[in-house]
Design a protein around this nucleic acid. Structure first.
Lengths: 224, 224
DNA sequence: GAGATAAATGAACGTCATTCATTTATTGGT
DNA sequence: ACCAATAAATGAATGACGTTCATTTATCTC
């Protein structure tokens, strides 16, 4: 069968007459509802059915505005990106700006780790908020004196660390409990115990701060 | 109805007689089959049905040996951990050992990113391979002169970076293509272009190397 | 009004992980 | 030899879930 060409001599269908039914739905509303749903029920509660119900609509209606659940996740991601604080890059010394940005970035995505697997592999094309962040960060690096060629690798490295740390922030306090195997891992068990008199003291925040300082110092040395 | 107490005067049911049907299945076999399935079909292809079929068995039979699909993922994770190369910690200078370990760790989990969200939050209790790795790494840090209290935070920071970088390694080459919005992000777009004459040159490996060097230098300064 | 348009509906579908009553195979005790 | 106990394996069923599609509903232009 021949391809269904959309009418010869026309690149697009002519919009001749008629307007649709007044829509209750749009991408902004869907995004807001998805965010509220996630904050109340977590990502397990974010189903197309639940999303539709929270909007007072049938699940299939959503597909007139988003092509898939993955697109909903992309919309949520973009919204979160707009909340990351990169303002320091135009006002603070580079080190402080990076720290502020990294803490804000990690803080936001620590509560949205299921998005990380999506983001980390998602092209920034048509993601205005994400691009706005990258633009501001890039400018900050330029003004701090980084060679242009080093900037993207630096950002990639920092983002990798931030995403990894966001996962960490959700680890349970007893993640390093060696249990029955404590005897066979004496040095590790002792190092864990040394963190505090309380058992199972997971050092997510301390570790983030230490690693971030190391990255800032090491990458900062690339400035000319 | 009263609780079904397992017989008064006995804490456990007496094992009186009888042995089971000869089992074709066990956790090792399930793990091996899961790994092979993943390497051939990816994590989308790892379903309980496909796993059962590759073992010549009904899906429900798996549940006599694992309690859930999540447990299958844990088994796979443990197997992968045993393949991470931490041997340098007993033979190489600390910097080189960390580098070798980090590259090996990232290389393995870059092909298993769906596991990262599970691992990062999974207690190490009863995970012998994982604990063996932590023990060796801890020993390496001790011998290099790190104060005991600093070691776990250092490992946590390095692991966060490694996991984040593993995601990155799977990013498409055009992830930084700003597309139609290139005009509104001039500095960022230029920085991306500066990476090479070819468009869309994603610097995952370069970034990993740079960030790792920074972390090694920064954390290494904590030695006494 | 007539006809075009897009949004919304509700009933499906296919894929999953998981449960459960039942059957099958194996063994030790009598 | 047989019986009782045990655990493995089966197959049918369940309940989510994302998604599709023919149909209906509401709105605007001509």
């Amino acid at each position: 069968m021949p391809a269904p060409t959309p009418a010869p001599g026309e690149t697009k269908a002519r919009r001749r007459a008629g307007r649709p039914m007044a829509s209750v739905l749009n991408q902004d509303g869907i995004t807001a509802a998805a965010l509220e749903l996630v904050s109340k029920k977590g990502y397990d509660g974010l189903t197309m059915a639940a999303l539709a119900r929270s909007l007072g609509v049938a699940p299939s209606a959503l597909y007139n505005h988003v092509s898939s659940k993955d697109e909903v996740l992309k919309l949520v991601e973009e919204d979160l990106m707009s909340k990351v604080d990169f303002g320091g890059f135009s006002t603070l010394p580079w080190e402080d700006a990076v720290r502020q940005w990294a803490y804000s970035y990690r803080g936001i995505f620590a509560r949205h780790t299921p998005l990380i697997s999506v983001i980390a592999v998602l092209p920034v094309t048509d993601a205005p908020q994400t691009l706005a962040m990258y633009e501001a960060v890039t400018e900050g690096f330029l003004q701090a004196g980084f060679p242009e060629k080093q900037i993207i690798p630096c950002i990639v490295a920092l983002e990798a660390y931030i995403f990894g740390a966001a996962f960490d922030a959700n680890a349970p306090a007893d993640i390093f409990d060696s249990g029955r195997l404590a005897d066979s891992t004496p040095h590790f068990t002792s190092a864990v115990r040394s963190l505090g008199p309380e058992r199972n003291n997971y050092p997510s925040d301390l570790a983030f701060s230490m690693g971030l300082d190391a990255l800032i110092a090491g990458l900062g040395a690339l400035r000319v």
